[in-house]
Design a protein around this nucleic acid. Structure first.
Lengths: 343, 343
DNA sequence: GTCCGCAGTGGGAGCGCTCCCACTCGCGTT
DNA sequence: AACGCGAGTGGGAGCGCTCCCACTGCGGAC
């Protein structure tokens, strides 16, 4: 059971680099990490040695002394298994990967359902195994926004957190404005019996979009009580649409809090023989790939998910590096309306 | 710019644990890591000290000496941004997270499009930053199956790899049998003009399903040339169905290599006024959530994705631990047919 | 001409851990 | 009574790195 081919078989160390370059280990170290106070001559020698030996710094050794792990966690406290069916995650993960990759920071994925897994996740985060945490898809029930700041680990939320919004930095899209824009479009179109399929009540994005919906209707002097809630999935949208249309068969406008749900609603409308947009105008939310492919193509509110994740990740990196005093910090990104065929 | 509150502020070390427990650091270490050769008395004292101090081992220090990082990479060499829209990933990631979590191994997500990002990914893997790699969604163009074994890092493929299948361990579902079963169902049903929407030609899963399709048709003495290819997305399925039905309007049976594509095909059939299953019987592939919600509900081949990812992850862990000689190793998991309304 | 300052350098300590090895001690064996 | 032996223990080295600090030259200021 000899574990591998002896001790340092392979991986050259900084010592070897130093020897080959004819300098001390300290100088080699300085040369490897952005050469402050290193003569041009020494720098070249070290670069050359690194190249020849194929030297790669040992992350563990470096982490031991710097107390930095060079990795950040993407935390997904999602009770629902279908997390990934939401294109929101794809975009977030992809953008985070890119930004982190630029800086050679590794992305550790932490998937945890509330309960026992959440326990372990918190333990993990507080153990200092990562330098920071990016929290995505936060729900009211997970008390992450309250707990994380006390863990002493830098964190940034994607989407406005519950309760802790004064303690925790976050990047969000302007969901209130988005909900308002979607609704105003229907008002301008001449709809007067406008309803909404809102998202889950334990997510701030859903609450905010609903608030925007109400604002627009109140401004137009229209009632705001035609509502149903879905869980951001297509099936949930279908059920909510059935429910809403049963209760309000005279609906002529519908604001849906996600494109996936809107697709479900479109199917229900078709099944009931409602022509879209003539009988029922529909506006979705996301524009992350599904809106183009619905039938008819969905008018929707675009979330600049890529920009959002990008900003959030950079903000986290900044905080890890101690830039920007560590106070709360928020970025709100505007949304845009994308007109297609349903409204 | 004082970085945090001094050096060891907080995190107790093993030394402190040892002191509190009244034993040596060596004994404390033994007690903390599965207590071999530790007296019951000492074990209790250490456990107590760990609890009181809230001790958590420093991963970096441990990694430095054991030459183990305690993390594995999940490699997704996916050229397509829509990776996550495929429920295949959700399942894989979720199962891997669970298995890895049990052992306190962290999951590092490596997303890399072929090209520059792939370069970096390979560099990363060879630098020994992770103990092993689980490769998911491998394509012919990424030469991972050839390159990885030479990197000296344990790896397991989810799905049969191209070319390197003799050098690389993998876990796969029996796609040939799955394709055959789906096709046989249509044959038994009495269909005689059976076509297929196959997956991308650069993925083994697609090739294998197509092979099963051909086997079944040949056994029944039916022609196998009614084919179109899609990219496993709904939109791709739609396009392929249009194409296929344009070329063969008389089709009475359709085997589709993924449920998402099948949904697209169903939409096309509906648009053309074809009744499913009476005019056109359809069988999908996956049963990972979308098959239940199509209209009508899709008859499909179930991939035990959870079991597959579970096995693959455990296999990887075994190889990392040096169990099972390190030779090639393959697991092929059977699929089952799930009958719903489309065939 | 002496001295200060500063760029560049190397020695060495030490991060927190594991593991090798030498040691003690109580027991059964000869 | 002397010995061997194995279970349990502690000392200490060392993993590969960074960073503090002391040192060497060499230029310019006095």
């Amino acid at each position: 059971m000899d574990n591998a081919r002896g001790p340092t078989a392979g991986s050259p160390t900084l010592d070897e680099v130093a020897r080959v370059a004819g300098v001390s280990r300290a100088t080699a170290s300085r040369a490897v990490n952005g050469g402050t106070k290193v003569s041009e001559h020494a720098q070249r020698a070290v670069d050359e040695a690194v190249r020849r030996l194929g030297y790669v710094p040992n992350r563990a050794a470096r982490a031991l002394v710097t107390r930095r792990t060079g990795s950040v966690a993407v935390v997904v406290p999602e009770p629902d298994d279908r997390v990934f069916s939401d294109p929101f995650f794809a975009g977030t993960l992809r953008a985070a990967t890119r930004v982190l990759g630029e800086r050679e920071v590794q992305l550790v994925l932490l998937l945890a359902r509330p309960g026992a897994e959440e326990e372990r996740m918190l333990r993990y985060l507080s153990a200092g195994h990562v330098d920071g945490a990016l929290v995505v898809s936060h729900h009211r029930a997970d008390r992450l926004a309250e707990l994380l700041p006390d863990l002493g680990i830098p964190c940034v939320f994607g989407g406005r957190p519950w309760s802790g919004s004064d303690r925790v930095p976050y990047v969000d899209v302007d969901n209130v404005a988005g909900g308002r824009m979607a609704t105003e479009l229907l008002v301008e179109r001449g709809c007067t019996r406008i309803g909404t399929i809102a998202g889950p009540e334990d997510m701030t994005a859903a609450i905010d979009r609903l608030a925007g919906f109400c604002q627009a209707l109140e401004a137009a002097g229209l009632p705001t009580d035609r509502r149903a809630h879905g869980d951001f999935t297509e099936e949930g949208g279908r059920r909510a649409a059935e429910d809403l249309l049963d209760r309000h068969p005279d609906l002529d406008g519908l604001v849906v809090a996600s494109d996936l749900m809107a697709r479900g609603a479109l199917a229900v409308a078709a099944a009931r023989g409602l022509r879209v947009p003539d009988d029922l105008a529909v506006v979705g939310y996301d524009d992350l790939g599904v809106a183009e492919t619905t039938d008819p193509p969905l008018t929707t509110v675009r979330q600049p998910i890529n920009e959002m994740a990008d900003r959030a990740t950079r903000l986290l990196l900044d905080r890890i590096d101690g830039r920007d005093g560590g106070g709360p910090y928020r970025v709100v990104i505007p949304t845009t309306l994308v007109r297609r065929a349903t409204a």
